[in-house]
Computed example of a mutant assay.
Amino acid sequence: MKKLAIFDIDYTITKKETLMELFKYVIKNDKRNIRFLPRAIYCGSMYGLKIYDERKVKEEFLKFIDGIREQDLAKLVRRFYDEKLKTILYEDAIKMMKKLKSEGYDIYLISASPEFYINEFHNIKEVDKIIGTKFNFKDGIFTRTMEGKNCKGEEKVRRLKEVLENEKIEVNFKESYMFSDSLSDKPLLDLVGKPYLINYRKKHEIEILKWK
């Protein structure tokens, strides 16, 4: 029976929100993409006003890579990881992964961020599995249409259990860990016997770790 160490990604193992960092990276590499900035601001406003849900926000926001070929997107996110993502990792998160891996835990990253780029975190040798929000490709072209639900809250638990069932993996959840910066992950935090909040600013019954 396996023991898991589950990590959220944004603000848990990274210092910044990764999708926004991808947007900034694309603009930095081609200033013409600044034309998508008004759309990004509009999407944020619509979400703040609760007119758009998170699915709608992501599908609209990702217009800046709409129609990109799958192989070109793969090259883009590989550069994005090498030049940006790996520079914003919390050292304490990597140390924790190494420690728990050495103790026999499987390391799972589960995030609401798009899988097409968070899969690059497989570059961290300790990482065994990555689960994120899926987006569709049609005839090898990125369509920015979300496949299934946004991988957040209860959906994270559902997706995790789906993977475990499909791969016939039995887990000792009582001995497993979950690390997250947010109570939006409470379904996963409640699933394990060893939950931790990362850099959480309020007092809480769940133990809080300060990572740098």
Rank of each mutant, 00 (worst) to 15 (best):
M1D: 10
I13Y: 09
K16D: 05
E17K: 11
T18Y: 06
M20K: 15
L22E: 09
L22D: 06
K24Q: 05
K24D: 07
I27L: 06
I27W: 06
K28F: 04
K28A: 11
N29D: 09
D30P: 03
D30E: 14
R32P: 00
N33L: 09
R35M: 15
F36Y: 15
P38G: 07
Y47Q: 06
Y47G: 00
K50Q: 13
I51V: 15
E54K: 14
R55P: 04
V57D: 06
E59D: 06
F61M: 10
L62I: 06
K63M: 11
K63A: 12
F64P: 05
F64W: 14
F64C: 08
I65P: 00
D66Q: 14
D72T: 04
K75A: 10
L76G: 01
K84P: 03
K86F: 10
T87S: 12
I88N: 07
I88Y: 10
L89Y: 05
Y90E: 09
K95W: 12
M97E: 08
L100S: 01
S102K: 15
S102E: 14
S102Y: 09
Y105G: 02
I107R: 05
L109T: 00
S111H: 05
P114Y: 02
E115C: 11
F116H: 03
Y117G: 00
Y117S: 02
I118Q: 00
E120P: 03
H122S: 12
H122K: 13
K125I: 14
E126N: 13
E126V: 04
D128R: 11
K129P: 03
K129G: 03
I131T: 05
T133L: 02
F137K: 04
I141V: 15
I141W: 01
I141Q: 07
T143R: 07
T143P: 07
R144T: 15
T145V: 08
T145G: 12
E147W: 05
E147H: 13
G148C: 09
N150L: 12
C151N: 12
C151K: 06
L160G: 01
E162C: 08
E162G: 09
V163Q: 08
E167W: 13
S176H: 10
S176M: 09
Y177S: 00
M178P: 00
F179G: 00
S184P: 01
P187E: 04
L188K: 06
D190R: 10
G193D: 14
Y196P: 10
N199E: 07
N199K: 11
N199C: 13
E205C: 11
E205L: 08
I206Y: 08
I208T: 14
I208D: 05
I208K: 12
K210G: 07
K212S: 14
